[in-house]
Design a protein around this nucleic acid. Structure first.
Length: 500
RNA sequence: GGCUCGUUGGUCAAGUGGUUAAGACGCCGCCCUCUCAAGGCGGAAUCAGGAGUUCAAUUCUCCUACGAGCUGCCA
């Protein structure tokens, strides 16, 4: 039989990474076996409905590459794919009534007040166990209540004796006492089904073979099993996933900065890297490889290798992985993301040219060089500005920076090097890296000193920073002759003042 | 409180009744090097605790501890 999985989010906001991983695994399980993957919108909670959430879902599926075969915007044979539309079609009520007729469910007219009175406090928490009060209403009473328009819900009738067992493909056999299972509500008083009910009905009607969902449903799954049994339906394969936590081993929260896919993208992470990273949270491939694109994940994904224990969402490793993806990006692709971060450091932009605080103009080619320099040195795009800010303006730096023990430089020999190279650089027209390299190498060779003795002062003068992406030649090439010379002269003045 | 699930280095994790208990991130060191990265090489670091089964348990069983989830007219 062909595998069919579904991703069934509620449109309540941004897509949480836990949900995204569930969607990913559902997608992967289906695609690995050449099966079908469908999208179903579970908007049965009218209060939590969030305006734009549907668009977020579509966009996220698009950006992550999780294409589905059927969904609200891709009609198939099992529509509609939005639960509120299915409510209008009367689907859930019809099935609920079937259950009532079978005695597997019943109308409940209990008021809020009565339910309140059932509340008990245990260990600081309020819990309600429904007492099946309305199960014992006579048929006449029920008819009369319904006729009078009294509000009602429909509840599942679970016996107080016996046990219910199901087998989860990851966690194995799970058994619970029926007496532990509450008579959960199937149809709410507004006529909408609860998640619990709609899920079972839709999964069956849509031919879902593998139900993949978070661990938090593990302990309520026996109730679903009883629903399948009550209908006489074959239950699907259940695949429950371990949860994802923050560094404190708590459920991911908004505060921790990794709560949603969109947050991550806004922080400068690439969708592909996010997908790759979350795929490895709760699942591992057979080999040692860790970098997988979606296609490779489809091939490698054997859901039997999903593990049981919760996983911490490690931002540090995500950053590393994102850096790997950035390094592997083709330059043109990389440029699309990086350009705005490079441009933002400059004072202004005129006629497509970036102009720095001192009026130095940077060509398109110079910008490309900057981006290239920074490509292997960042993990996320927002890392760029602070690495190249010195290009906008020579920072105020301490002369002490010219003194470097390992380079064997000090303020005296640094001054000497700058003064000696200045005329050479003034005479030089070609400021390409290669040409500068030849020029200075020649000077170094004649002077018979180590590279560092010359290049450290030059790089310092031209950048004013302890560390920079690229070396003296690269920086001079980008700054151009005029600005490079100006900065070297500034260095000479500083050193002369210090040595005086 | 009850129920359910989980526990291999700081983190992601492989693995098995007998192994020197993989690999990755991070950390540390070395090499390369004009700085920072990248790259290369190396290092420290793990089977929650206790019983039992067994010739042998990280692996099987039980208990304890700890953690998480559920216990909604939320999903």
């Amino acid at each position: 039989m062909k595998i069919r999985t579904r991703y069934a989010p509620s449109p309540t906001g941004r897509m949480h990474v836990g949900n995204l991983r569930t969607a990913l695994y559902e997608y992967l399980i289906a695609r690995h076996e050449d099966g079908e993957f469908i999208l179903r919108i579970e908007d049965t909670d009218q209060e939590r409905f969030f305006e734009g959430a549907l668009e977020i879902i579509y966009r996220t599926m698009e950006e992550t590459g999780l294409d589905y075969d059927e969904g609200p915007d891709k009609p198939g044979d099992c529509g509609p794919y939005v639960q509120s539309e299915r409510v209008e079609a009367g689907i859930y009520m019809e099935y609920a009534k079937q259950l009532v007729e079978k005695g597997e469910a019943y109308y409940c007219f209990c008021t809020k007040e009565r339910l309140e009175s059932l509340k008990q406090e245990v260990a600081g928490k309020e819990i309600v166990v429904y007492d099946k009060h309305c199960l014992y209403l006579s048929k006449e009473e029920v008819e009369a209540n319904l006729a009078s328009g009294m509000p009602y819900v429909i509840r599942q009738n679970i016996p107080n004796e016996g046990t219910t067992t199901f087998v989860d493909d990851i966690y194995g056999a799970i058994t619970v006492e029926n007496s532990e299972l509450d008579d959960m509500i199937l149809i709410k008083s507004d006529g909408y089904p609860t998640y619990n009910f709609a899920n079972v009905v839709d999964d069956h009607l849509m031919g879902i073979t593998h139900v993949v969902r978070g661990n938090e449903y593990l302990s309520s799954t026996p109730k679903y099993i009883r629903l399948y049994d009550a209908f006489g339906w074959e239950p699907p394969v259940f695949v429950h996933l371990p949860l994802i936590t923050d560094e404190e081993h708590h459920k991911l929260s908004k505060r921790s900065g990794h709560s949603s896919f969109e947050d991550l993208v806004e922080q400068g992470f690439l969708p592909e890297a996010i997908v790759n990273f979350i795929a490895l949270l709760g699942w591992s491939p057979e080999g040692n490889e860790e970098l997988f694109n979606l296609q490779q994940l489809i091939e490698a994904f054997d859901y039997k290798r999903v593990n049981k224990s919760p996983a911490v969402f490690d931002m540090v490793k995500l950053r590393w992985m994102n850096g790997e993806y950035i390094k592997n990006l083709a330059f043109d692709e990389y440029k699309k993301y990086a350009a705005s971060y490079v441009k933002q450091i400059f004072a202004k932009e005129e006629d497509g040219l970036c102009i720095n605080a001192d009026g130095v103009k940077f060509s398109e080619a110079a910008l490309d060089k900057i981006m290239d320099l920074v490509k292997t040195r960042i993990e996320i795009f927002p890392d760029i500005p602070e690495k190249i800010d010195f290009l906008n303006q020579l920072p105020e730096y301490d002369v002490a920076m010219y003194t470097h023990k390992k380079m064997k430089t000090n303020s005296e020999n640094s001054l000497e090097v700058l003064k000696e190279t200045l005329p050479l650089l003034e005479a030089q027209e070609d400021y390409s890296v290669d040409a500068l390299h030849d020029l200075i190498s020649d000077y170094i060779a004649k002077k018979e000193v180590k590279n560092g003795l010359v290049l450290w002062p030059l790089r310092t003068a031209v950048s004013g920073k302890q560390s920079t992406p690229g070396g003296a030649f690269e920086i001079m090439e980008i700054l151009g002759k005029e600005e490079s010379l100006r900065r070297i002269k500034v260095g000479i003045e500083m050193l002369e003042a210090a040595n005086a």
